[in-house]
Design a protein around this nucleic acid. Sequence first.
DNA 1: CAACGATATATAGCTTGCTATGTAAACTGG
DNA 2: CCAGTTTACATAGCAAGCTATATATCGTTG
Lengths: 143, 143
Amino acid sequence: MAFQKERSAGYLANQMARLFAKGLHERIRPLDLAPAQFMTLLALWDEDGLTQIELVRRLDVEQATMANTLTRMERDGLIERRANPEDGRSQAIHLTPRAKALRDPATAAARAQNAAALADFSEEERETFLALMRRAIAAMHKD
Amino acid sequence: MAFQKERSAGYLANQMARLFAKGLHERIRPLDLAPAQFMTLLALWDEDGLTQIELVRRLDVEQATMANTLTRMERDGLIERRANPEDGRSQAIHLTPRAKALRDPATAAARAQNAAALADFSEEERETFLALMRRAIAAMHKD
DNA sequence: CAACGATATATAGCTTGCTATGTAAACTGG
DNA sequence: CCAGTTTACATAGCAAGCTATATATCGTTG
């Protein structure tokens, strides 16, 4: 029996995630933001001054990935790394005024992208969809 | 109202796709395959001798992405690019014996990854999940 | 048939993801 | 107290995605 990619959850998940990222990227392009930067900002808008390790835990990416994303964000004037007087190893990540100002337009763009993707879903289907994704994520985390 | 990433379809889709890719990558590591190479092989196992443009259409990635993936696959002895005597611009992509031999173990690995992700889903939930992903993909394609 | 547009592929340059490894600071047990 | 482990971050190197642009061949049209 042939492997049908249209019936493979992994295949569909990859394609769907790329389309989400592409759509979001387009919508936030005027803000000069990239998707991973937006995701990082979400955590920092919620709580400024987090440490790199705390960001890694909240966003569930590898530490090296986060380090690189933060370097680009620092280069782009979105964050500042401040030394921690209590612990010479860690640094607190602080938002710049520019990053703070992006909160409303950026989250609006993300909401618009989610709405476009789920435009023809009923409210119940949206909830079901989110719940199923969370369950698949949890299952793979355990695995 | 705060933007909650746990309730964002795009955020969950990204995380889920990364976990699928990571899991698949681990399972096919003994075969010395990377996920995008596997995806490309799926199309070529189904029909050998496709052209780069045909692969781009079937897998829905950008032409430049496919060109680079094919270059790596050629380097790794998975494919051969053969000149097309009818059209000097295009090349037919042919599988090597090594790539042909990988079909069974690689698709088994992909099935195992899908099964792990959806382990605690009922049969009905699996169908629902695939259908919802297809609909989200279609909606973003139109957008 | 020559010029021009369309098509197929390649390349440059970037972001985001990963693994593996290095480095410095902090902690801990003997 | 200091040797060894753990922790926080950085760096190297790769795959895969993207946009933008170059190049070569094919087709078409005046």
